[in-house]
Design a protein around this nucleic acid. Structure first.
Lengths: 245, 245
DNA sequence: CGCGGCTTTGATGTTCATCAAGTAAAGTGG
DNA sequence: CCACTTTACTTGATGAACATCAAAGCCGCG
């Protein structure tokens, strides 16, 4: 039932769709908005929302641009990153569906202080900020849900960041591999959605040392590595390293 | 007008007061609650709120205890800390008045996953969570204000944490000293509210190396140090180290 | 085919943690 | 109030973790 109202395709192969028949009530992500809204409010969401497709590598949000929408991820995988004072890129977080893309800044700043890039082909769903503000203003249950959701997301982000700071390189890399294995792909074999360089940007170390650590894991029989494909051969060791390394 | 209804004094010299005449509308912190509330709602805040006094070193919130209240800091200075996986304490943040004490977890978790301790004599003001939830549910303007405030706080926390990660020890210590000088005491001479060990817990390094760095700054003529009293002798150097170190 | 970016390994130096030892300060009990 | 214990602070020496520099192989792409 989804019709393409804008066939516009830019260098990133972006596609925008609207949804006149409104399939929002069947959306996997309805828990937040739809379940808390009545008929009229639901209409605002249905007619106001915009879905966008992004191919792997496409830029979804650019640091410094104005915040006009409240977006979240319907499918795919994205990275949040920022440019640090010395000009290097730093990955803040990786978000999968159900995680907000707009979790930071949306209700505080005028502009994004981070960028979002698609790690896999991804689909976002966005509402205009004024519409979201108006819905929150009129609907207390939605407001509480949103507070709760935001609080959970930022809590996790902060605790992850604190945990990673006390770990050594081996522990950080193990932690990251386990994240993909358990939270994203639910498998002990998967294709890394990050380059070695991106892994380094995420764990806050150099590319060379990330590679060295992966090689060590391979030599120790913990991993089997075929380019970007990773197979975890010794899950217990990896978990132990992630926790105590 | 403030009467002590509970003269209870524990080992931390805690004092609880209620405020029957309601001075909330004159509170320096009214911007959040009072300005967004009408008469009846204001009554809930006035009669429901509880102020508590804590002496330096007193425990305000203990990690793992149940969250029953929404609190913020009226005066003083506090540290937020948690116990990391290896059992060591890690300082998450330092909060001064206008910063929430309850910024993390309150709307997501059942229990605190961090502790709060008074670095200076402090006063908190608390409302029951149910009352806050009910107010948010009924008052959209309050909800939006709260979202905005929370978002600003967590944004700052996350960005600080990311920035500190790319800096070396000298940069981190300089950053911390500038925080006290500029944001807390508005002076280039002040008494450090943290021990050397606490500074280490905050910047994520060892006590010895924090001391070494302070000594270096002293030898380089950037600081004058008299025990806990710090005088910044060369502000430009310190700022430069904080940014590029 | 050749260029640029990503990946990998090795050699070297820097930053930082750890261990050790000593001094100063602050609390504790008689 | 003093002897005692504990805790905070300080400096030095050593080794581990990590960054940096260098060089070479790989791969995709125009």
């Amino acid at each position: 039932m989804t019709t393409i109202i804008s066939g516009y395709v830019n260098q990133h192969h972006l596609r925008m769709t609207r949804d006149p028949g409104c399939t929002c009530e069947y959306c996997e992500l309805r828990e937040l908005f739809v379940d808390n809204l009545d008929g009229d409010e639901l209409d605002i969401v249905c007619t106001g929302k915009v879905e966008r497709d992004y191919v792997q590598g496409a830029s979804i949000i650019k640091e410094g641009t104005q915040i006009r929408e409240f977006s979240y991820l319907k499918s795919g995988l994205v990275k949040l990153l920022r440019t640090d004072t010395s000009g290097k890129e730093q990955i803040i977080s990786i978000a999968k569906p159900m995680d907000y893309v707009s979790l930071l800044s949306v209700f505080s700043n005028q502009r994004y202080n981070y960028s979002v890039v698609a790690l896999e082909d991804s689909v976002t769903c966005s509402l205009k900020m004024e519409e979201v503000r108006s819905l929150i203003n009129d609907n207390g249950r939605l407001a509480l849900n949103l507070l709760s959701k935001m609080s959970r997301m930022t809590d996790k982000l902060i605790l992850d960041s604190l945990q990673i700071r006390v770990k050594h390189l081996r522990g950080r890399v193990a932690y990251l591999l386990l994240y993909f294995s358990e939270d994203v792909y639910s498998s002990d074999e998967f294709d890394l959605p990050l380059s070695r360089k991106e892994m380094a940007e995420y764990v806050g170390m150099t590319t060379e040392n990330v590679i060295r650590t992966l090689s060590e894991f391979r030599k120790d029989g913990i991993l089997k590595i075929y380019g970007k494909t990773i197979q975890i051969a010794n899950m217990d060791s990896l978990k132990s390293i992630a926790e105590f390394g």
